[in-house]
Design a protein around this nucleic acid. Structure first.
Lengths: 143, 143
DNA sequence: TTTTAACCAGATAAAACTATCTGATTTATC
DNA sequence: GATAAATCAGATAGTTTTATCTGGTTAAAA
């Protein structure tokens, strides 16, 4: 198999994009998140806990508790979520698995791949989660 | 962790690119391949066997046996190797892990990601392994 | 015909990733 | 207080990926 983001990261992105559709300040319990997204509860709970540590979301414990964004949606970039969960290794690591892949010791596809990788990095860095509110809502309504 | 190609696929690409630097018709034993590339022998053997089944390389058994390309290097595209090992799921699957991601039920980043994915697919489809001979040799000499 | 050097096939092991379970702690309401 | 509903923490289990092991088969050369 081949993967871009780990399952952890995919679920994390889904969950944070979902939280971005909610009213600022209101808190959403995991049960609602996994109910809407159809993803495994215990697993996602762990991911959300780690995103709390990363400072991307916060949690309110106890009855009527839940999760909410820790900052304005316009301040949370897709790359922040990826970096918090999978790290940014993807953007440093040689795509062919060669060691010491760099401009001075480039792998065969170093240049060709470098362009694609930079474009992906730039997209994830430019896009903030506030921009996906409508699209997230319509995707979720189709699930 | 996050990955583009599986380790299998990375090793497979390395090995086939290496075979492309060899004289046409000459056969290279696994020992030489893993000696130059510094990758695990038994694992790579399995991968090479599967590439024989896929028709990308052929093998010669017995003493002075080994592996060689089954076609002209200019006829082997990077995408052929990826397709044989990892499959092309990467280019169909939703990057956020949503089910039924399509133009009619797009995930939030469907359009943005689609462009990047198409560019990657096009690159792998356009590039044939004959184009990387020199770069492969210089990378290997630095290992 | 024996030896040697290679590929081949199946089983097994080790590691990483994905997922679940159990119980504890927190907090709002009755 | 007692109860209910939520997060939190640590242990465990299942699955996939990565890697190794053992022995068999093939083919060239002495």
């Amino acid at each position: 198999m081949t993967v871009i983001f780990s399952k952890k990261c995919e679920y994390g992105l889904q969950a944070v994009l979902f939280l971005a559709t909610k009213e600022t300040g209101t808190v959403t319990p995991v049960d609602e998140i996994v109910g809407k997204l159809n993803i495994p509860k215990e697993f996602v709970s762990k991911i959300l806990q780690s995103l709390v540590e990363s400072g991307i979301i916060f949690s309110k414990k106890g009855k009527f508790g839940g999760f909410a964004l820790a900052k304005a949606p316009s301040k949370i970039r897709l790359i922040d979520i990826v970096a918090a969960i999978d790290g940014l290794n993807l953007f440093n690591r040689c795509v062919l698995g060669f060691p010491n892949c760099s401009p001075t010791e480039p792998c065969p596809v170093h240049d060709k791949w470098g362009i694609l990788r930079t474009n992906a990095y730039d997209m994830l860095t430019e896009e903030t989660i506030d921009k996906f509110k409508d699209k997230t809502l319509s995707k979720i309504s189709s699930l």
